[in-house]
């Protein structure tokens, strides 16, 4: 757990990706499916060289999506700090040929390889996911999921959440500023825990009250429980090229894996 991507400076609705890029033109549905397929194939691989190629492909996707490289990699590194304890322990817990010993615990090659394998997989998949799906507008993600037959309720929930995360964050920052103005400083003490509890409680109260006004306004405009999606998504040649290219790449990874003796 530890540190969350601290105080996201960018709003959720602003993905930071340039509008017109090679990937932006590809149908969002294809990009979602591509990310899922990529993840499944990468998870199934065991060969270190192939996983390296997978990570390389994910880096390439990141560059193609024109995601700002430094912040994206920083985010990936943040995730790595979470898994570091898991990975650091593996060499000592997997039985096998010892490399060195620390305080009588032997680190093994097998454990080291497994740790490296997990690190490569986790980073390749999260990078590809951010490049393929994270570079689209959150609203587009909702639309695309809806067109992929995700349950309507889930899509609505996603759209509402995306719409109101920024609003609630503003609410949070205002409350926090009011606390600061009254001399609140967070520390490891009961007063802090209680104050933050009141803060969370107040956010929930404001959220539900806001939602009452939203519902009233939506009803006023004839809300019947459906949100019409206006854009039409069409599968075109660019999508076919993208799909064929990706499928060929993934198929060759699987083929190489089956052929390799390991």
């Amino acid at each position: 757990m530890g540190h969350f991507v601290s105080a996201e400076r960018r709003a959720l609705r602003d993905t930071g990706a340039a509008r017109r890029t090679l990937l932006q033109g590809v149908d969002p549905r294809s990009r979602i499916l591509a990310a899922v397929l990529f993840a499944v194939v990468i998870v199934a691989l065991h060969d270190m060289a192939l996983l390296g190629i997978g990570l390389g492909a994910a880096l390439l996707m990141m560059l193609t999506a024109r995601l700002p490289a430094l912040p994206t990699l920083k985010r990936m590194a943040t995730m790595d700090t979470f898994i570091i304890f898991l990975i650091a322990m593996l060499p000592f817990t997997v039985p096998g040929d010892p490399i060195f010993t620390v305080f009588g615990f032997a680190a093994t090659w097998q454990g080291l390889w497994q740790a490296l394998e997990i690190a490569l997989k986790a980073n390749a998949i999260i990078l590809a996911l951010m490049a393929l799906v994270g570079s689209m507008e959150p609203v587009t993600l909702g639309h695309a999921l809806s067109r992929l037959r995700a349950p309507e309720g889930l899509v609505h929930l996603l759209m509402f959440t995306v719409r109101y995360v920024d609003v609630l964050r503003g609410e949070y920052l205002r409350l926090r500023q009011a606390m600061k103005a009254r001399g609140f400083r967070a520390g490891t003490n009961l007063h802090t825990f209680r104050s933050l509890g009141y803060l969370v409680g107040m956010m929930l109260v404001r959220a539900i009250e806001r939602s009452e006004r939203i519902l009233a306004a939506m009803k006023c405009r004839g809300f019947t429980g459906r949100l019409p999606l206006l854009d039409e998504l069409a599968f075109c040649r660019r999508d076919a090229v993208f799909a064929i290219g990706l499928l060929a790449f993934l198929a060759s990874l699987i083929a190489a894996q089956t052929v390799s003796p390991a």
Partner: peptide, 11 residues
Amino acid sequence: KMPAAGVLSAA
């Protein structure tokens, strides 16, 4: 209940 669930989810 959808708006309430959505805004609470955001909260």
